[in-house]
Structure formats: structure tokens, C-alpha cells
Amino acid sequence: MIDPSLIVDLLSKNVLETGNPLGVSNEKINNWWKETKIKSRGEWLFFTGMLYQLTPYIESLVSYLEKFENSKIQSILKFARYFRFLAFPTLKLVTPKRSVEESNEILKNIYSLLDSSVEVFYIPELDTYNGILLYDYGDDESFATHAKFVVKKLKEANIKKIVTADPHTTYALKVLYPKFTDADFEVRSYLELINPKKVSKNGEFVIHDPCYYGRYLEISDLVREKLKKTGINYKDVRYSKKLTNCCGGPIEALTPKISKAVAELRAKELGNSKILTMCPICLANLRRVNVDAIDISLVLCNESGRAE
């Protein structure tokens, strides 16, 4: 296992200093909206929590950490805390462009699906990392500090209703922020608000419920209702909804090898159909074991890539 103190300390410092776990300003990674006709006013603020934007870079980092894990050179990592400023430029160089483009495409599709269903708007300056990793690693103090920073910005902008893109951000804003801050926003996952139309997609899909949607937020049935409306042919495996199994993603930075082994088990359970994911971490971690997986937003839209 990679030294948890190293990962937790780096993460805390980066988030508290820059608002971003990679230690860079959000502008450097948040570009999906630049090619989209976004509205600046509406009923529901689209808040991505930066997870889709961060995931391609995190995956690149994990592929390197995997080489260090449990090797003779693992001790080198302890010096990483002194070279934080080098991390993002290097990561950007080694992160596949197509992964970044795919994340952007997913966010465009989610926005488009929302735009055809509710009064949605987006303000890039308000969109911030959700802080969930700090919470997961038990750094409640840093999580609370960051959450208060996010909530302050949103409250100053008079935001009342927030729609999110991924399960971790949904859980953070809906369940955790009210516990750690004075947040009282109405928070929904985009999957709860959209009204998808019929789409023409061939083949059979198998659903991988993320743990936060399946167990913590319990919206798995609702997702299936939406899918039924589109006419998409999907199936469930034994371990789905509240009993879904983890993709292994949450431990990828601490132990990429075990995280990958967990993904392998999950991939076997899901079988040979194309896997539908609803979380950037699930999508990335399942793909580490070479499965055919796709984000649900790319399926819910028509071939044009946009909701009608």
C-alpha cells in the first residue's frame, strides 16, 4: 500500500491551497462548457464537482503509482510532497487526450439532457471540486473547510437548487454538506431530473450501479425507469442496486493493484455485455481491466450526441 499519510497530506494541501486535488486552478481542467451553449440563469445550477474533469488525470497518476506499489522503489514516493508543483504539467503530458475529450463529451451530454428537461444553467466560476476524497480519507477538518468555501460561493450567488453529474458529488452536496456546513440546497442527480427520449442503440447493456447511487442514495430504480423510456435493452446482474459491488476505484490511489483486482471481480460478475456506468471513477477503474464500458449519458442521448 502506498503510504496513506503521503496521499492524504498531498491531497489536503492541494485542495486547501487551490481548491483542487491536483493542485491546479479549475480553469486548467474545466473546459467542456466552452463548446456548449450554456445558460447563465435558470432554476437548477449544474454543478459537476470536477470529478469527470479530474478522472483522466487521476487515472494517469494511478497507472504510475501501480508501478511503484510494493516495489523496491516505492520509498521514492515520499519525496513527492516536495515536487507538488511539477505534478500537473507532467500529468497533462502523459494523460491521453482522448480521455479528456471523452470526459468533456460526457459533461456536454449531461448538460444537454438537462437542458431539454429542466431550466438548467452553468456558471464555471461556481463549479468547484466537491472535496469527497478528503472525507473518504478521514480528513474531516479539511473537508469541512473546503465544503464551507464551496457553500459560501454558492450562497453568495444565491443558489437554491443544484443538479449534479456524478454520485460522489451528489452525496457530498446532498448528505455531507448539510452536516458539515450550513448548506440547505435542494440537490438532485441529473439522472433524477432528465426526461430522456427514445434512442436507437443496438445491443444489450448491463448496469453497474455505483455504490453511492445503489446504497447510499438509493436511486437505482429511478435510473432503470429512465432507461426504459429510451427503449435501451439492459439487464441486471445478481449484485445490483442495493447489493451492487464496488468497482475498486476508491482505493486506486492507495493500492492500485488491489483496486484493479476488485475491478476484475466486478467485471466478471457483469459478464460480456457492454457495461453502463454512472460515475467517472467506476468507468475508469473498470476500464483498467479492459472491459467494454460506457458512461450512461452517452447512451441516453441520440446518435447526434445530443438530447432532442
Binding site: 500500500m1 473518504d136 480519507y137 478521514g138 480528513d139 455504490c211 446504497r215 451492487t244 464496488c246 493500492t255
Partner: peptide, 29 residues
């Protein structure tokens, strides 16, 4: 730190013990 905090343990536990939250508490300490 090896736990994914996925919550399956709490879901299947007959006593519904919130193990993920205790894992987090250990991390916090």
C-alpha cells in the same frame, strides 16, 4: 485504508453495523 467504503458490509450485516463510518473514524484518528 484498504477499505473502499463501498458500504456492502453494512448492507448485509444483520445488525446493520455502520462499518464504513467506523473505518472513517479510524482514519480520522
Amino acid at each position: 485504508f484498504l477499505s473502499t467504503l463501498c458500504g456492502k458490509c453494512r448492507e448485509v450485516c444483520p445488525m446493520k453495523i455502520n462499518i464504513p463510518e467506523m473505518m472513517r473514524k479510524i482514519r480520522r484518528l
